[in-house]
Write a protein that binds this DNA or RNA. Sequence first.
DNA 1: GTCTATAATTCGATAGAC
DNA 2: GTCTATCGAATTATAGAC
Lengths: 192, 192
Amino acid sequence: MTNGKRERSQRTRAAILQAARERFAADGFERTTIRAVAADAEIDPSMVMRYFGSKRGLFAAAADFDLALPDLSRVPSDELGAAVVDHFLTRWEGEPTDDSLRVLLASAATNAAAAAQMQEIFRAQLAPVVAAAGPHDPPTAATRAGLVATQMLGLALCRYVLRLSPVVDLDRDAVVHWLGPVIQRYLTEPSG
Amino acid sequence: MTNGKRERSQRTRAAILQAARERFAADGFERTTIRAVAADAEIDPSMVMRYFGSKRGLFAAAADFDLALPDLSRVPSDELGAAVVDHFLTRWEGEPTDDSLRVLLASAATNAAAAAQMQEIFRAQLAPVVAAAGPHDPPTAATRAGLVATQMLGLALCRYVLRLSPVVDLDRDAVVHWLGPVIQRYLTEPSG
DNA sequence: GTCTATAATTCGATAGAC
DNA sequence: GTCTATCGAATTATAGAC
């Protein structure tokens, strides 16, 4: 394959992936059609099959992402909660916006593979960072990570998916003000 | 119509509705088929159409529910958080279990009507109870209700839909212990 | 009230020309 | 690599017999 063709192939692949992320995030797995993704990417539907094999393969590629959490062991212990909340807000509302979490949120409720992927992301990415934030059993780091997930995913659900107006209307500082101490408690409070 | 026929009709309708709630809760709106609901209810698919008009009509009937929140103005102010968390746990895990919230959660991400219904339930049922819990602006009762929604819906999402194991493994007392103070703060902390 | 039969769509996936 | 054409399956919804 020539370099020109390879570059074009990579561009096509990237265009498909971007269109797929937007569709999956907006409509979920079931309602997203390969035909619609192809139309958004301005290519033929059969190309989606060629590049990703199947609708499930396309979804797996679109939903693969990295929380990119910072190393909490370097954050002052009394600022852990605010740091975590701020990080997620940046990740979800920064430029350019990454739709990957919304892809998973919109599909995890009705797609076992998506739910499993969400579980794995929090197990493999959030729990170790929580553990590294400091020794504080009980409860275990896994339990603390689960508690953090209830609040952060609940925020994402209400703010980006359900779009509950009082939650959408909170500005960034207000979100950190209200959720920061909650996450702080989940990360550091000793008893369980 | 004779009384016998009317009773039978009511039983059929109730059987359809129960089967629909289970299917919608487990699979969401898109993946749930009228055929599957009818098979579960052991009746003909066309009967579902006769009773509920359309798949959307069936969903609307299955997703209609009442949070049945208690009057918080009668709860001691320092027990508000624990009372709310305990109420939701009873509502979601009591006998018999009511799947209605899971019906909405599983569909709200990909179904605009479901998201709107969820918004309306929290606006019409949660916000007034929060307001009645006592005067405490700012922030407004709507904002406080929104914050409560982020934590309680996040719990429901992680515990019942995603089934994150650390969250599933928490017993009732642990949930109240961890979330109670969070809800307490969202309901009563003055500054905003 | 309950059923059969089917209309009318839509989708994922494949085959194969170029 | 890209496209046309189409298969086979599944769905909602309707029409009408009994």
